[in-house]
Simulated scan of single mutants.
Amino acid sequence: MATEPSPAAHQQLRADAARNRETVLAAATRAFATSDSEPSMRAIARQAGVGVATVFRHFPTREALVDAVYQDQVVRLTAGARELLANHPPAQALRLWMDLFAEWQATKHG
């Protein structure tokens, strides 16, 4: 069973490979959030402007890509919480973060 490389492994990627990975993640995030059906790996590659082999090089299975998108979103929500808390009083930061979380949750299709 193929697994997603650790975050430390992503830091070791060449600059162009890291850029491609981030581009694929962003395209997959948009595709999963906006598509009425499950977008194909080929469609995600096309939206990212890379070849399908590039997608599979970084994410050997669809499940690995879905997992990476989810992990990326959780990391962004966590970072967003820290940033909000650094810039707003705790009660306001919590409320703003809850709005972000609600927006994130609204993009999920089951």
Score class of each variant (00 low, 15 high):
L25K: 01
L77D: 06
A9M: 02
R46T: 14
R21S: 04
A79Q: 14
H10L: 06
E4D: 09
A43K: 13
D72F: 06
E83D: 05
Q73V: 07
A8E: 13
A45R: 00
Q11W: 03
F32W: 03
H88S: 06
V69H: 07
T29V: 08
V75L: 12
M98Y: 07
A28S: 09
A86R: 11
F59Y: 08
Q71M: 07
A48Y: 04
A79Y: 06
A45H: 05
H109L: 00
A64D: 15
Q12L: 11
V52M: 05
H109C: 04
A106D: 13
A106Y: 08
S37P: 00
V50Q: 04
L100E: 10
R30W: 04
Q73K: 10
S6H: 08
R46N: 08
M98K: 08
Y70G: 07
A17C: 09
K108R: 15
R14K: 14
R30E: 11
T78H: 09
Q92F: 02
A31M: 11
S37D: 09
R42Q: 12
N87R: 08
V74S: 02
R30T: 13
M41S: 11
E63L: 10
T107S: 12
A15I: 10
H58G: 03
L96Q: 07
F101N: 05
R14E: 15
T29H: 13
R19A: 15
D67T: 14
G51R: 00
T54N: 09
R76M: 10
Q71Y: 10
A91N: 03
A27G: 11
R21Y: 04
L100M: 10
R14G: 15
R21D: 06
W104S: 09
K108A: 15
T29F: 03
F56G: 09
L25F: 01
D67A: 11
L94C: 01
P39L: 10
Q47K: 06
I44W: 03
L84F: 00
V24H: 01
R95F: 01
P39V: 08
H58V: 00
F32P: 00
E4N: 08
R57G: 04
R62T: 12
L13V: 04
P60D: 05
S37E: 11
A9L: 01
A79S: 11
V50A: 07
R30I: 07
R19L: 15
H88Y: 05
H58N: 03
A33K: 03
D16Q: 11
A17Y: 06
A102W: 08
M41N: 09
A48L: 03
V24N: 04
R14V: 03
D99F: 00
T3C: 12
E22W: 01
A68T: 08
F56A: 13
V66T: 07
L77G: 04
A93R: 03
A26K: 01
S35C: 06
A33E: 12
P90E: 01
W104T: 05
K108Y: 13
A43V: 02
A45K: 02
L65D: 12
N87T: 14
L25N: 02
A64L: 02
V75M: 05
R19N: 14
R76Q: 15
G51N: 12
A53Q: 12
L100A: 06
